[in-house]
């Protein structure tokens, strides 16, 4: 498990070096779960650079521990008050800030989304995940490649990182898990690949949740990090070409999986990550399959949510 609690630090370390190389003196970021915000605040503290993190008002409430962490690291957390007041709206505000401050500011995007070259760049920084998977897999199983890789998808950065060095290995099956929210046939979901259609969001041409006029539909998930109406263009491509298999897990299925993982392995996962584990209850594997599941983050930030559901699990 990475320092700061999720995979997000892989990307922010790369991007802060880039920002310094570009001579930038001010960093902005958007965050949903707060993990990317914490990872950005951490590298800014390390390099002594001013840091402003945009976060939806709703997420500021449901991910309070991460708001506290960011403040402790010296970052300013600015609430995004438009739309559903979640990740999409924080991203809008960050982009507007960047339009206002193009000279001194670098925008550290937290996932494989946004305009080129972000999806490509963030995937490359996260590719360390699959590099390490390859090494550890060889050590532990003697196999070069796994049969399956499972990862949750918000924008898709932990998934992109976990798949990256296996993209040309046709024998590796990719399993992506989106947040179904209250269910894909309710109005409260973030399962973009099922509910989305071809369009443009935040400078990417990809799948996104929209109505027939191209107005973006507000997504919903219990997990702030998966609550995004789009999906990285790499994943849209993998799904559309049939290269990746895609599933979704509801709020309830993710909660159940989080409690199961906690009680069987002693690992409290992030709510985002719990969605990836949820499909272990649904999809069947062969007994000798080597399955890699990406544990993208830990669940300290989600304790309040978990505790409020304690009586049910």
């Amino acid at each position: 498990m990475c320092h700061t609690g999720a995979h997000k630090i892989n990307n922010t370390i790369g991007q802060i070096l880039l920002a310094e190389r570009l001579g930038k003196t001010r960093i902005i970021a958007e965050t949903g779960a707060g993990q990317h915000g914490v990872a950005t605040a951490t590298v800014c503290a390390l390099r002594g650079i001013e840091c402003i993190v945009y976060m939806g008002e709703v997420d500021i409430k449901r991910q309070a521990p991460n708001v506290a962490r960011m403040k402790m690291l010296g970052a300013e957390v600015r609430p995004a008050k438009s739309g559903s007041r979640t990740l999409k709206d924080a991203t809008n505000e960050a982009i507007r800030d960047w339009i206002d401050n193009p000279i001194d500011t670098h925008y550290i995007i937290g996932s494989v989304v946004g305009p080129h070259p972000y999806p490509d760049m963030v995937a490359r920084f996260q590719a360390i995940i699959s590099k390490e998977i390859r090494m550890q897999l060889k050590e532990q199983t003697g196999q070069e490649i796994p049969d399956h890789i499972i990862a949750c998808v918000g924008g898709g950065s932990n998934a992109a990182g976990a798949l990256y060095h296996f993209l040309n290995e046709d024998d590796v099956n990719f399993i992506l898990v989106e947040a179904a929210g209250k269910g894909i046939d309710t109005d409260h979901s973030a399962a973009t690949s099922v509910l989305g259609t071809h369009g443009v969001i935040h400078g990417s041409m990809t799948l996104l949740m929209q109505d027939e006029d191209g107005q973006i539909i507000e997504p919903y998930s219990i997990s702030a990090g998966l609550d995004y109406p789009g999906i990285g263009p790499l994943h849209a491509h993998l799904i559309k070409t049939g290269r990746a298999e895609v599933h979704s897990a509801t709020d309830a299925e993710a909660l159940k999986a989080a409690f199961e993982l906690t009680r069987t392995e002693g690992i409290i996962p992030a709510l985002e990550t719990a969605h990836a584990f949820a499909i272990l209850n649904e999809r069947k594997f062969e007994n000798d399959d080597v399955v890699v599941i990406n544990l993208s983050g830990r669940g300290d930030k989600d304790l309040a949510t978990y505790i409020s559901h304690l009586d049910r699990y």
Binding site: G83, Q215, I216
Partner: peptide, 26 residues
């Protein structure tokens, strides 16, 4: 538009109002 990235508060608010009035491109 629901997400007018190049626009400040005044135009954002007018867009929101117009959308809730029921406007569409057609």
């Amino acid at each position: 538009y629901s997400d007018p990235l190049a626009d400040g508060l005044t135009i954002q608010e007018s867009s929101q109002k117009a959308l809730s009035n029921g406007i569409s491109l057609s």
